[in-house]
């Protein structure tokens, strides 16, 4: 028992142990609610809600009416859960960043490579996030909704997507890290 509690309090688990947990969550999603995991779709639902409130005419299209209707969906609840899951995880290891000095630019390696300026981190992360969400739309899901959820059902799409992630990610990392790659 003490071993288990000590392990839960660790900041980082073995990725194999954490991976088993994620695998069980994937099974539970199908078993309990006949659904797949996924995060990117939730942002489409929320964007539709905001869009329809602010500019109803512009958002009155096939996508926001039928493909990804706005509203609090299963996917939105899942992302809310992920938010609190991250919070609980960090709380158990005493690594919560709320109110901490380094909360705005949270990674040491980033600062070593790109400097301590918060605006730089935020600007690049912002553009990265736009690209991620758009790409998830084209691909049919993100790391959770396509790579994990599709992969566990043995959908070819998932493995094509994972290959693509590396084909896109490796040269990008090589370019932005330069000599430090």
């Amino acid at each position: 028992m003490k071993f288990i509690l000590d392990y839960i309090r660790k900041d980082e688990w073995s990725p194999y142990v954490a991976g088993v947990l994620l695998g069980l969550v994937g099974i539970a999603a199908v078993w309990a609610s006949d659904s797949l995991l996924g995060a990117s779709g939730a942002f489409e639902n929320i964007a539709g809600m905001i869009g329809k409130a602010v500019a109803p005419a512009a958002f009155d299209n096939m996508y926001f009416n039928f493909i990804m209707p706005p509203g609090i969906t299963y996917g939105v609840m899942l992302v809310v859960g992920i938010f609190f899951g991250g919070m609980i995880g960090a709380a158990t290891s005493g690594t919560l960043k709320w109110g901490k000095k380094d909360s705005a630019n949270s990674d040491e390696q980033w600062k070593r490579i790109f400097g301590a300026q918060t605006w730089k981190r935020w600007l690049i992360a912002f553009f990265g996030a736009i690209i991620l969400e758009y790409a998830a739309g084209i691909a049919g899901g993100c790391t959770s909704g396509l790579a994990i959820s599709g992969g566990m059902l043995l959908a070819p799409a998932a493995f094509i997507f994972i290959a693509g992630m590396f084909v896109g990610g490796i040269p990008t990392a090589w370019l932005i890290y330069g000599k430090r790659f």
């Binding site: 690209i131 084209i138 790391t143 992630m165 990008t172």
Partner: peptide, 18 residues
């Protein structure tokens, strides 16, 4: 193509939606 662009975004931001 979606995966490639996704990898590009991931390498910039260091995260994915989840």
């Amino acid at each position: 193509v979606g995966g490639i662009i996704f990898g590009f975004g991931m390498a910039l931001s260091g995260y994915c939606p989840g």
